[in-house]
Simulated scan of single mutants.
Amino acid sequence: MEEHTFVVEEDTDRRLDVYVVDHLPHLSRSFVQKLIAEGYVTVNSAIQRPGYKVRRGDRIDVTVPQPEPTTISAQDIPLDILYEDDYIIVINKPKGMAVHPAPGSWSGTLVNAILAHCSQLSGIGGVERPGIVHRLDKDTSGLIVVAKTDQAHRVLQQQIQKRTAERKYTALVWGETKFNEAVVEAPIGRHPTDRQKMAVIKDTSRYTAREAITRLKVLERFRGFTLLEAKLETGRTHQIRVHCSFIGHPVVGDPVYGGTKRAVPQTYSKLQQQELEQLIGSLQGQALHAHSLVFEHPVTLERLSFEAPLPPDMQALIDWLRKNG
């Protein structure tokens, strides 16, 4: 069991759940909201809502109970494991696989597969997210590190919070960017009207949003498309997809943030347009892949670096563009 006490020393307009996550970055916001709902977080000895706005002088007590025994079923699903020891596992996650169970998707997830492979996982993420240090969207492929022990989990999340861990993605986006390198610094929160989506929030006094920073670098340009490397400085939900859409270059194949609504440029011949449309249509999700992961081993402190090749559907589209674009 963990117990923490904070006294708010500054004037702030932050929500209670956001304040706790900022001070306990190894806990996810959804997990903190669950703690608040179950009475494990109090303000001045009283239970408050997650949206309570903390004030100077508030005393916040947080109790993190021992994790419950997992009830998520183990499933014998093949895993592409790049590295494993007694503390961590590095996996190349395929497209179409959710990272953890959730309503409507209680099986076939990365967690189900890991539980069949390894019985010991960190409990910090809660019953439904054992070992999960960071996430990838279901239809985003690539590298993810999973913690086997609570200590490894804390150290890895601290690296992500302090930005000493490096997470780089390859993204194929619509349009030809005017920049070679860019930093997108725009806060992200739940969409004001469509709660199933995230969005860049301009009015942060009215809507809750968190700092989000993405560094973009052009790798290659094609007719009507750009291949980008995206480096995460923060790790908000759908961050790269939201930021690329925000700057007018949605990720190709992204069904949520405009990546399926663009028409193939008419600068291509009719036959080429048909071929392009077929390749884009065959993408199993957005053309976004976590290709590089660098961090310090949580125990040995050795700097580890991993690379994962692009999935075949994304590689085929890029190869075609290199030949014809």
Rank of each mutant, 00 (worst) to 15 (best):
H289D: 04
E10I: 12
N180V: 08
Y87C: 01
T226G: 02
R215N: 13
F225P: 02
E2C: 00
S292N: 11
E3Q: 09
T204K: 15
H289N: 06
D76I: 00
Y257I: 07
F222R: 11
A171V: 11
G235H: 10
A316D: 13
L16V: 08
R129H: 09
T42D: 01
T260D: 06
L79I: 11
V218I: 12
A147L: 06
E38L: 14
T193A: 06
L232A: 10
I280F: 08
P250R: 10
E229H: 03
L321T: 01
E211S: 10
V184N: 09
Q286M: 14
T267N: 12
Q120S: 14
T204R: 12
R322N: 08
L317N: 02
F179V: 10
D194M: 03
V90K: 14
Q284A: 11
G108M: 01
K53H: 13
V146N: 01
G248M: 11
V20C: 05
L317P: 12
R154D: 11
M198A: 01
K323R: 14
Q33A: 04
A46P: 00
L219K: 15
W320T: 13
E275A: 13
D86F: 07
P311C: 04
D203K: 15
Q33L: 03
A182N: 12
R210H: 15
L121I: 15
V20I: 15
A147E: 03
H4Y: 15
P25I: 08
L35C: 05
R135G: 06
G108I: 00
G259V: 04
F31S: 09
V8P: 04
V99S: 00
E233A: 15
E128V: 12
S73Q: 15
I89N: 00
E176K: 10
L27K: 03
Q274E: 15
F295K: 06
V62R: 08
K178F: 07
N44K: 06
D22K: 15
R55A: 14
Q315Y: 02
A290L: 04
T12C: 11
R14F: 07
T42K: 12
K270F: 13
T149Y: 07
G224A: 05
I280N: 02
R167M: 13
A102I: 06
I89C: 01
R215W: 00
T193K: 07
E9F: 00
A37W: 05
F31Y: 15
R190T: 09
A98G: 00
K270W: 13
D150E: 13
L276E: 06
H243T: 07
Q239Y: 05
L79F: 07
P265G: 03
F179C: 10
E176H: 02
S119C: 04
Q157W: 01
V90F: 05
P298T: 02
L283Q: 12
D22H: 10
